[in-house]
């Protein structure tokens, strides 16, 4: 439940507003939806990774890998997929930490 809520809620609010909406949605979902802190962490991290990593992966493929592969060396990375990985990691960190913090605050 929390996974889907964070995924959908963050997708809509982030698309309309700004990048840290993921953290806000994570906090709220963690606090008000049932479940423990550990589960909140995993669901939030999963939702964040799925949202950021999934969107980045979709764009990377739809773009024919052009931008990702050109930008990867700017970050000392050999391949555009690793940039997708960085996006997913950031999403996981934001989603997981915020949902866990929300659950912990109850």
């Amino acid at each position: 439940m929390r996974f889907l809520t964070i995924l959908v809620g963050a997708a809509i609010t982030q698309w309309l507003l700004t990048w840290w909406m993921l953290a806000l949605v994570g906090l709220i979902a963690g606090r008000y939806l049932a479940g423990g802190v550990r589960s909140a962490w995993w669901q939030g991290a999963g939702a964040g990774a799925a949202l950021w990593g999934g969107a980045a992966a979709y764009i990377h493929i739809a773009n024919g890998y052009l931008l990702g592969d050109r930008l990867a060396p700017v970050f000392n990375l050999p391949d555009g997929w690793l940039l997708v990985g960085v996006s997913a990691l950031l999403g996981a960190l934001l989603g997981g930490l915020s949902a866990a913090a929300g659950a912990y605050s109850r």
Binding site: A55, A56, I59, N63, L67, V86, L90
Partner: peptide, 13 residues
């Protein structure tokens, strides 16, 4: 890295 407004938004599809 925000997939909606960050650098990925510059990837033309």
């Amino acid at each position: 890295f925000d997939p909606f407004h960050g650098v990925w938004a510059n990837a033309e599809r």
